[in-house]
Design a protein around this nucleic acid. Structure first.
Length: 575
DNA sequence: GCCGTTTTCGGCCCGACTGTTTTCAGTCG
């Protein structure tokens, strides 16, 4: 995961070059490279050794050298040089929303400001008004920006963003004159964390929508308000951007505001090469300005000679080439899901009885749920002794005798102990239908040790699925150190599935890792890690990750009907 | 700094909103 630090370095280079007024296209090249590194899920060091860095999009000779330099020294000299020769504090100042490179230059050169704290003092003392083009309003806006920065513009996870968006959509839907409404932006693309919420409204009377928006209980402050675009802040400090569009160009606007930015840039480049222009109002011929479409999103893609591309794929990660070649994946969908594997009940730390879970699973149209309560070592979660596990199995068998067209699988989430052995002996595991292997202890072991633990669990014939393979908890705990390439290869080799844990703070594997695992031949499974009935809904979030990973139904274990699932498990046990 | 169905040189996406302006620069997405 070194590429994240490197991406940050490239991004800092871009910021500093921008401050210095360098060539904007050079700056963009750094930003694009940073973005691509952020999304890259392979093994950077391996690619570098093979001399194949330039195969990465946006990486040419110069940036390939800088990557190599970083991999061997842990630093990029060009960045260090820029930092040394640029006024101190520039990178910190640029963090303030609304403060860009030009303003930063004024602040550092005219007033010698080098920290956000100094900026705040200067603004409060009205010293900024001495600057050209500065009056009271700009001073206040910078103070507001500092306030937002201090609150921490922390991105929210989908578990928060989705319900909030649903509530806003419901409210705006009721405004008269509104004909269509949709989320856009990173939420529609189902990115794991969301910065601002983007909403799109088709209406013939924009003013009414903007007025209604400012009066919502969820509107704590109006940040900006124009005729077609407004931004508000919710009481929890979430920024919501709302665009009102004429119904005739709703599709073009939806395409435009769904992004990603990188995807859109590629599309507009493609348009220019065809003598076309693409903007949020539609696709136009450059010469005549004749409009070729824009009411539906598909119109936009069609005008560029492409099939419609699913929002989750729009990250400039090969989807445009795939679309051109007619090789877009048939992404997994909610209706493909036949069951859920990682379900806790009152037997360990869940809050629902087996029977309630069975009823709910059947009501959702699933064929099966695997009950996987914790194993004996995990005392904090009321892990089950072998005796209790067997009593639970007895109860599940009894329940299954009464169920028609639905089955509870007898499973367990079994700790992978610090020495790599399983928390139940193999003869007990053999009695279960479904075995999850999980790491819940020894997070700080070395990469080699943790990787060995996972691999030895996968070599156990009874282990069907590795849960939350990296152990990360967004905002709380970093992933523990494991060699993902080795783990993925081992999963493929042993016929062990890897989980896409759909708990909003986990999303583990994440999209890029899941895509890589699939590329290396591993089978995946979306499971919700449910501890109470409503958490079964998180399957939607897991589906988002799977779709962003380009997964098709055949790549996912829980898209298989029961008999095929049981065959898959049996095959590993026999081998 | 990258890149090639217009190119190995000369291009490189597009528009809205704000504030301070009488026509535009800065910032953002």
């Amino acid at each position: 995961m070194k590429q994240h630090e490197l991406a940050a370095f490239f991004s800092q280079i871009a910021d500093l070059l921008e401050y210095r007024g360098d060539n904007p296209f050079r700056i963009r090249a750094y930003r694009r490279a940073a973005q691509n590194l952020e999304n890259f899920s392979g093994d950077l060091a391996h690619l570098a050794q093979a001399g194949r860095l330039r195969e990465l999009p946006g990486i040419g000779a110069d940036l390939a050298d800088k990557i190599t330099e970083y991999l061997s020294t842990g630093a990029v000299a060009a960045l260090e040089r820029l930092k040394r020769t640029t006024a101190p504090g520039v990178l910190e100042l640029l963090e303030v929303p609304g403060l860009g490179p030009k303003t930063a230059k004024l602040l550092t050169e005219r007033l010698g400001i080098s920290t956000v704290h100094q900026l705040e003092e200067a603004a409060n003392a009205h010293r900024l008004r001495r600057l050209p083009g500065f009056q009271e309003k700009k001073e206040q806006n910078l103070l507001k920006g500092i306030e937002i920065l201090k609150k921490g513009r922390e991105r929210m996870h989908l578990g928060i963003a989705l319900p909030l968006a649903r509530e806003l959509l419901r409210s705006l839907q009721r405004v008269s004159g509104v004909t269509r409404i949709s989320t856009a932006g990173s939420l529609r693309r189902m990115k794991e964390t969301i910065g601002d919420l983007d909403l799109l409204v088709a209406s013939t009377s924009p003013a009414r929508v903007m007025q209604a928006l400012s009066r919502l209980p969820l509107c704590a402050r109006v940040l900006a308000s124009g005729t077609t675009k407004s931004s508000i802040l919710t009481p929890d400090g979430v920024q919501v951007d709302v665009r009102v569009i004429k119904p005739d160009s709703f599709g073009a606007a939806l395409q435009y505001f769904t992004g990603s930015k990188e995807h859109n840039v590629r599309l507009r480049e493609l348009a220019i090469r065809q003598g076309l222009k693409l903007n949020e109002y539609g696709v136009f011929r450059l010469k005549t300005n004749q409009r070729l479409g824009g009411r539906e999103e598909a119109d936009v893609y069609r005008a560029l000679g492409l099939p419609w591309i699913e929002p989750e794929l729009r990250e400039d990660q090969g989807e445009i080439d795939a679309a051109k070649a007619g090789r877009l994946p048939r992404l997994v969908d909610a209706k493909d899901v036949r069951g859920d594997f990682h379900i806790h009940s009152t037997w360990s730390d869940g809050s629902n009885q087996l029977e309630e879970l069975a009823r709910e699973g059947a009501a959702r149209g699933y064929d099966y749920l695997a009950i996987c309560d914790h194993s004996q070592s995990l005392k904090v979660a009321h892990g089950m002794s072998v005796a209790r596990l067997r009593r639970q199995m007895e109860q599940i068998r009894a329940l299954n005798r009464r169920l028609r067209g639905f089955r509870l699988l007898m499973g367990a989430e079994v700790d992978i102990l610090t020495d790599g052995s399983m928390d139940y002996p193999n003869d007990v595991l053999a009695e279960l239908d479904f075995v999850i292997g999980s790491i819940h202890s020894g997070f700080s072991q070395s990469e080699a040790t943790l990787t060995r633990r996972l691999v030895s669990a996968m070599r156990n014939p009874y282990v069907t699925l590795i849960a939350h393979p990296t152990g990360r908890l967004m905002g709380q705990r970093d992933p523990y150190a494991i060699d993902l390439e080795t783990v993925f290869a081992s999963a493929a080799e042993t016929g062990t599935a890897l989980e896409i844990n759909a708990f909003p703070r986990r999303l583990d594997l994440c999209d890029t890792a899941a895509r890589r695992a699939n590329a290396l031949g591993a089978t995946l499974a979306i499971s919700t890690d449910t501890h109470s009935l409503d958490q079964l809904d998180n399957i939607t979030i897991g589906l988002g990750v799977a779709r962003r990973a380009w997964l098709e139904p055949r790549d996912l274990l829980n898209c298989r009907p029961l008999n095929r699932l049981l065959e898959w498990i049996a095959r590993k046990r026999a081998a």
